[in-house]
Design a protein around this nucleic acid. Sequence first.
RNA 1: CGGGAUGUAGCGCAGUUGGUAGCGUACCACGUUCGGGACGUGGGGGUCGUCUGUUCGAGUCAGAUCAUCCCGACCA
Length: 492
Amino acid sequence: MAKELTSREENYSQWYNDLVVKADLAENSAVRGCMVIKPYGYAIWEKMHDVLDRMFKQTGHQNAYFPLFIPKSFLSREAEHVEGFAKECAVVTHHRLMNDPNGEGVVVDPSAKLEEELIVRPTSETIIWNTYKNWITSWRDLPILVNQWANVVRWEMRTRLFLRTAEFLWQEGHTAHATAAEAIEEATKMVNVYADFARNYMAVPVIVGHKSESERFAGAIDTLCIEAMMQDGKALQAGTSHFLGQNFDKAFDVQFANKEGNLEYVWATSWGVSTRLMGALIMAHSDNNGLVLPPKLAPIHVVMVPIFKTEEEHNAIVAKMEEMKKEIEAKGYTVKIDDRDNLRPGFKFAEWELKGVPSRIAIGPRDLAAGTLELARRDTLTKETVEEAGIGEKIAALMDEIQENIYKKAFDFRESHTIKVDTWEEFKEKIEQGYFLLCHWDGTAETEAKIQEETKATIRCIPTDSFVVEEEGKCVYSGRPSSRRVVFAKAY
RNA sequence: CGGGAUGUAGCGCAGUUGGUAGCGUACCACGUUCGGGACGUGGGGGUCGUCUGUUCGAGUCAGAUCAUCCCGACCA
């Protein structure tokens, strides 16, 4: 259970689990492995949702919605897919309850057993491809570029708040194309949308790359991903985009007539990000005072704390704040005036810092007389007294600066924890210290498995962006020849 | 599913050899406070995770079960 954070002397080193609870983001629910996301936390998810949704639409996608329940037989159509998900499915077997004959509450009505069990979707490929079968007959129907915002359920052995909950919110894009090249282009385009989102909105640097065969999505030909580094040096897979080849459309017999009138199977992709991004955001930026939110995803940009003794002072200061609030809101930022009269300023400062609000304005009688205010920023925990004139521009500039600074801090951290490694001894040493290791790998699953067994490190990705290091070398484990470096790390 | 730990007030905890539940904090009221997590006085709040046993009597002992946390295996 999370510790109550009431004392400033409290050791906040368990910033992850503790802060998300105290910071009003999420708490465990009565349902195993599921989470309750409180309003403040959900507001952050809504921000992510809105930005991503806009990006999807800009790249030509539309939203749609498919059923929560998947007939069991659908799931088993694609062999690798069912093997990958079978162990973690919630299954609906009955559709009715009845009063307990013994008078003890309600029980499942045995006569209401379903003919075919329904699976609560762990992902929607199967039910969507079963639907696409009816949508696709001609080359003129392609491409289909559809996204769904939904919840999914994966009954994991072990859950972890935000990173691996039994139920989570996500979006899943499912597209159909006439050619393999077009589908590959789509999968690549979308992983880059995710990378753009992570870097420019979440302020989290990510590496784009391919998964190795063993880490691939169940049923995919190729899985692209973005990998982020958390503050403990561990990697977090923050988003994936799959080239599915023709596996699903063949399983559901989705063919179209091409321009020559011949029947062909389509080419598919799927891609998704989830509430795991909330975990990434928290773990990438938080400090011992709580969350640090990038302005572009913060539900509140500026909190104003009046400092007063008398009601007259309170009224005068809040009136001034209302003016400033209008000016700042005109610039497109959200302002919260915290004029609660039962709490002292210091308490409010600490509370809003815990929630990660990027900046704070404090005004007291002395400021009111001098036409100044105290402007504090969350990322550096510094504060300065500034003139109140032009506060709108000042906040706008500050938000840009904070957004940039948070990214730079995370980027510098990753840079300082990423090294090229060429010997097995160094590999074992550095992996324990929380590094991303760029090393040569012979390309075999055996070597990958051995390395994981001995060090718990996995291949996070085979990079495709600026991390690509094409060079001849020898596998760090087996010594066999290799033509490029891959990223090894311990992962969540 | 294996190993370990824990379930008592919203949260964090105490509760002795079994005798019918307490502390801190939060909450409510009043007063004094208010530029970095205030203080005083008074007050409200608990089927002790659940079930079954042992007992005159169970928060306490036994068994089962559920859940949570940590470590493995599995995964976004």
